[in-house]
C-alpha cells in the first residue's frame, strides 16, 4: 500500500496532468452538446460587461457604417409599409381577414439588441448581445438582423445573451428555395464566413443561380421567409443524390452591430400540438 502511495506521489504531476485533461475533455464534449448555464460563457456578468466596454470604445470608429445600415433598413421598412397600406385598401373591411391578420401580426415580438462581441474567423462562432433575462430574452429564441438570419440564443444571464451564430458547424437551419419551394437545410462548413452550403436538394429539381434561400415555415423560431442567402454556385456530380449548392449569406457578419431577437408567441401552442399528435400516432 505504501509503495502505491509512493508511486502516486512520485508521478503526481503526471496524474494531475491526466486528471486536468480528462476534465477539459469532459467540458468540451458537454459544452458542445447541451445548452449550459450562463456562468461559463461570454454571457456572464464579468465578461459581458468587459466586452460591452470594449465595444463601446470600438463603436466610435464605425459609426458611419452603422448609420448607413440603419438608414438602409429604414428605407426597406418604408417600402414595406407602403405596400401593406395598398393591400389594406384593397381588401377593405372583412372581419375574418382582420382577425387572421391580427393573429399573424402579433405572432412575433422583436427585441432589438446590440452585438457586444462577435467572431467570424473561428470554427464555431458565437455572438454576445447586451440584452438578457431582464429584457425578456430566453434560451432558444431566434436572432435575425435587418438582412437575414443571424443565429439562435444559446445561454442567457440577467443582462447578456450568448448566441450561436449560423457560422457554427453544428448549426443547421431548415430552409427552402424561394422559387420552387423545395425544403432543404442550410449549414456552414467552417471555412468562409460569407458563404454557407445548402444540403438535401434532390437531383430531379433545377435550382437557379441567384435564387433566394430563406427560412421555411417548418422552422418555428424564425419568421417564415427570413432570407438566408442567394445561390452563387451549383454543382452536381454524376453519382450524387443531392446538389452541392453554395449560397452567399445575406447577413454580413463582419459589420453586424444591431440585431433583433425573435419571440414566437405561438411556439408553445405549436410544440404541444405537435407532441400531442406524435403521442396519438404512437398509441
Amino acid at each position: 500500500m505504501q509503495r502505491l502511495f509512493e508511486f502516486l506521489y512520485q508521478y503526481r504531476a503526471f496524474f494531475l496532468f491526466i486528471f486536468l485533461e480528462v476534465v477539459c475533455s469532459w467540458l468540451i464534449v458537454n459544452y458542445n452538446r447541451y445548452q449550459s448555464a450562463a456562468f461559463f460563457n461570454s454571457s456572464n456578468a464579468l465578461s459581458g460587461s468587459i466586452m460591452a466596454g470594449t465595444t463601446a470604445t470600438a463603436d466610435y470608429f464605425r459609426l458611419g457604417q452603422v448609420n448607413q445600415h440603419l438608414a438602409d433598413e429604414n428605407a426597406q421598412l418604408r417600402k414595406q409599409l407602403l405596400s401593406t397600406e395598398t393591400k389594406v385598401m384593397v381588401v377593405s373591411d372583412s372581419s375574418a381577414i382582420e382577425k387572421a391578420d391580427s393573429i399573424t401580426r402579433n405572432q412575433y415580438t422583436f427585441y432589438p439588441a446590440k452585438v457586444v462581441n462577435n467572431s467570424v474567423r473561428r470554427y464555431n462562432n458565437f455572438l454576445t448581445l447586451n440584452k438578457g433575462l431582464s429584457d425578456g430574452i430566453e434560451v432558444g429564441m431566434g436572432v435575425i438582423s435587418a438582412e437575414g438570419v443571424v443565429g439562435k440564443v444559446r445561454a442567457v444571464s440577467e443582462h447578456y445573451a450568448t448566441v450561436t451564430s449560423i457560422l457554427h458547424t453544428n448549426m443547421s437551419i431548415s430552409a427552402r428555395l424561394q422559387s420552387s419551394n423545395t425544403l432543404c437545410t442550410v449549414k456552414w462548413d467552417g471555412l468562409d464566413p460569407t458563404e454557407a452550403q445548402v444540403l438535401y436538394v434532390p437531383r430531379h429539381l433545377k435550382p437557379q443561380m441567384g435564387d433566394t434561400v430563406s427560412t421555411s415555415g417548418f422552422n418555428a423560431i424564425y419568421p417564415e421567409s427570413t432570407p438566408l442567402g442567394i445561390i452563387t454556385d451549383i454543382e452536381l456530380g454524376d453519382s450524387d443524390a443531392f446538389y452541392t449548392i453554395t449560397i452567399s449569406l445575406s447577413t454580413d457578419f463582419y459589420t453586424l452591430s444591431y440585431v433583433y431577437v425573435v419571440k414566437n408567441h405561438l411556439l408553445n401552442e405549436r410544440d404541444s400540438l405537435e407532441t400531442l399528435s406524435t403521442v396519438q400516432d404512437e398509441e
Binding site: 459544452y31 449550459s36 456572464n44 473561428r122 458565437f126 450568448t162
Partner: peptide
C-alpha cells in the same frame, strides 16, 4: 474559454 465561448479548449 469563458470569453471565447469554447469551454475546455
Amino acid at each position: 474559454d469563458i470569453f471565447y465561448d469554447s469551454l475546455g479548449i
